[in-house]
C-alpha cells in the first residue's frame, strides 16, 4: 500500500511543482502575489473540458486553446499590476483577489456550478512495472509535469531570456543597470507563467473536479511550495512539490480524503510562522 502512496504522492507532487512553477516565476520577477492563480488554472481546465465535451477534441489538442485564454487573462493582469503603487505585495494580493472573484463568477456564468471532470478512459487503465501498479493517468501526470519542468529549467539556464529572468529575480536594480529591460522581463514572466498554467489546467481537469471555486486550493498549493522553496530554485520547488504531494497522499490514506485540504493550509501556516519575513527573507536592517 505504501508504494502506492509513494507513487501517487510523487506523481501528484510533480504536478504541484508544475503548478507552483509559474507562480514562483511571476512572484520572483515582479514581486506581486497572484491570488487569481488557481482561478486561471481552473479556467484553463474549463476551456479544455468544453472543447473535449462539445467538440470531442482530444485532450492533447486542447492545450493550445487553454494557453491562448490564460495568456490573454495574464497579460491583462500584468497591465493591472503595472499600475499599482507600493506596497506591491499587498496591493497585488487584493487586486488579484478581486480578479479571482471576477473569474469565479465568469466561470459560474459560463459553465454553471456543477462539478465537471475530463474523463479519458485510457488514463484510468494501467500497467504493472516490477510488481508496481501504475495507472496511465499517474504516469502521464508524472511524465508531462517533469517534461515541462525540465523544459523550463533549460529555458532558464541556457537561453538569453532565461538569464535575463534570473538576473531580474536576483536583483532588479542591478539587472536594470546591466541593460536588462526589467519591465519587459515582467511581461515575459507573466507570459511564461500563462503558458505553464495553460499546460497545467487541462491536466488539473483530469485529476480533480472542476467547479468555479476550485481554484483556491491550487492557489494555496502554489504559494505553499513557493514559500517553501524560495524563488529561482527549481530543484527546491520539486522537493517542495513532492513533500506536499506525499503529505497529501499520506493524509488521504491515514485520515481520509476529506482531510487532504488541510495539509497545504497547515504547511503554509507553519512555513510562514517559521519564516515570517516571507519568500525573499529580507529582514529590515
Amino acid at each position: 500500500m505504501w508504494t502506492t502512496v509513494l507513487v501517487s504522492g510523487i506523481a501528484l507532487g510533480s504536478f504541484y511543482t508544475l503548478v507552483a512553477l509559474g507562480f514562483a516565476l511571476i512572484f520572483g520577477v515582479t514581486h506581486t502575489f497572484n491570488l487569481a492563480y488557481g482561478e486561471l488554472l481552473v479556467l484553463a481546465g474549463y476551456v479544455a473540458y468544453w472543447l473535449w465535451k462539445t467538440y470531442g477534441i482530444s485532450l492533447l489538442f486542447t492545450f493550445p486553446a487553454a494557453i491562448v485564454v490564460t495568456l490573454a487573462v495574464c497579460l491583462i493582469l500584468q497591465r493591472l499590476f503595472s499600475r499599482l503603487r507600493e506596497p506591491m505585495e499587498m496591493n497585488s494580493l487584493v487586486v488579484s483577489f478581486g480578479l479571482a472573484i471576477l473569474l469565479q463568477n465568469g466561470m459560474l456564468f459560463l459553465f454553471s456550478g456543477d462539478y465537471r471532470m475530463i474523463r479519458v478512459p485510457f488514463l484510468n487503465e494501467g500497467f504493472r512495472f516490477h510488481g508496481l501498479y501504475l495507472s496511465y493517468g499517474q504516469f502521464t501526470l508524472l511524465a508531462l509535469s517533469l517534461l515541462v519542468i525540465a523544459l523550463t529549467y533549460l529555458l532558464m539556464r541556457h537561453t538569453y531570456l532565461g538569464k535575463g529572468l534570473r538576473a531580474t529575480i536576483q536583483d532588479k536594480e542591478s539587472a536594470a543597470l546591466a541593460g536588462i529591460n526589467v519591465s519587459g522581463m515582467g511581461i515575459l514572466a507573466f507570459a511564461i507563467g500563462a503558458i505553464l498554467i495553460g499546460l497545467a489546467g487541462p491536466l488539473f481537469g483530469c485529476i480533480h473536479y472542476l467547479y468555479p471555486t476550485a481554484g483556491l486550493q491550487a492557489t494555496l498549493i502554489a504559494i505553499t511550495i513557493t514559500i517553501f522553496a524560495g524563488v529561482g530554485r527549481i530543484r527546491s520547488l520539486i522537493l517542495g512539490g513532492w513533500i506536499l504531494g506525499l503529505a497529501e497522499s499520506c493524509a488521504v490514506v491515514v485520515l481520509g480524503a476529506s482531510w487532504r485540504e488541510l495539509v497545504s493550509a497547515l504547511m503554509l501556516i507553519t512555513l510562514l510562522a517559521l519564516r515570517p519575513y516571507g519568500i525573499l527573507g529580507k529582514e529590515e536592517q
Partner: peptide
C-alpha cells in the same frame, strides 16, 4: 505583516 499576514489568515480558515 502585510501580504504574509493576509496569506496566513487565508490558509488558517481551512483549519
Amino acid at each position: 505583516r502585510g501580504a504574509y499576514f493576509a496569506l496566513a489568515t487565508l490558509a488558517f480558515v481551512e483549519i
